[in-house]
Design a protein around this nucleic acid. Structure first.
Length: 237
DNA sequence: GCGACAG
DNA sequence: ATCTTGTCGC
């Protein structure tokens, strides 16, 4: 399925859309629910591009939260919907991600995104944006500090330091050490999830590598999907 | 104006 | 994100 008919085309439209969605974000756990409940399905999503051929491929992978086994996966290929503009990444990545998620048979308990959620200039990074659009719980795990500040966490796995917005001083996320002595990842709340839960979930999923198992699987899958599409002509699931 | 800038 | 070889190490 193509790009949503009403998808923003200009930066001005995208900025207005972020302002509209921003107040809808729920930056905390759902009341009366155990966020660490066993037997849940966590989804990982990621996107790969080929600007040359105007192609984008997204992947959605479902993992069992306890065993980290992949239980289902889906991909979606389409045209690039928006250029890369820092702060407006959601408009470039989400159309394909929504298609990949829609192709899944089961609904994930939480979706782990590549990038930020509340840690965003206007508090609506792609993770939060995706949460509002789907109603699903989401959180973001980014690989670089973006425009935020942080101090180096202690070397032990599990240690973390606050990620702050230099403009306001508020904590927008956390720099989390998922592997001893390895560069930290940057976790932020997406939607219907609190920061403690987002960090806990990230650590549970990144037991063996720096990045969550969800993103690692989604990353390799969307690259394969892109290679296929580039070789064939278009779609291929 | 200049530099920085998730993926 | 993507362009790209070998190399050091568990």
């Amino acid at each position: 399925m193509p790009i949503p008919a009403d998808w923003p085309t200009t930066e001005a439209e995208a900025l207005a859309e972020q302002e509209r969605l921003r107040p809808l974000v729920q930056p905390h756990d759902d009341p009366g629910r155990d966020p660490a409940a066993p037997g849940t399905l966590i989804a990982g999503v990621d996107v790969a591009y080929d600007d040359e051929h105007d192609l984008v491929a997204a992947a959605a992978v479902l993992l069992d939260r306890d065993t980290l086994d992949v239980v289902e996966q889906a991909t979606a290929v389409g045209r690039i919907a928006f250029p890369y503009v820092p702060g407006l990444l959601a408009f470039r990545e989400l159309p394909a991600v929504l298609d990949a998620l829609a192709a899944l048979t089961r609904t994930p308990d939480t979706v782990v995104c590549d990038g930020y959620g509340l840690a965003h200039p206007r508090r609506l990074g792609l993770a939060s944006h995706l949460g509002i659009l789907t109603g699903l719980r989401t959180l973001g795990v980014a690989k670089t500090p973006f425009t935020f500040d942080h101090h180096e966490p202690d070397a032990a796995r599990g240690s973390w330091t606050p990620l702050t917005d230099p403009a306001t001083g508020e904590e927008v996320g956390r720099a989390v050490r998922t592997r001893a002595g390895v560069k930290p990842v940057f976790v932020s709340v997406g939607h219907r999830t609190g920061l403690d839960t987002a960090v806990r979930t990230t650590l549970d999923l990144a037991r063996h590598y720096r990045l969550p198992e969800t993103t690692r699987h989604a990353d390799s899958l969307c690259r394969r999907a892109l290679a296929d599409a580039r070789r064939t002509g278009t779609n291929a699931n």
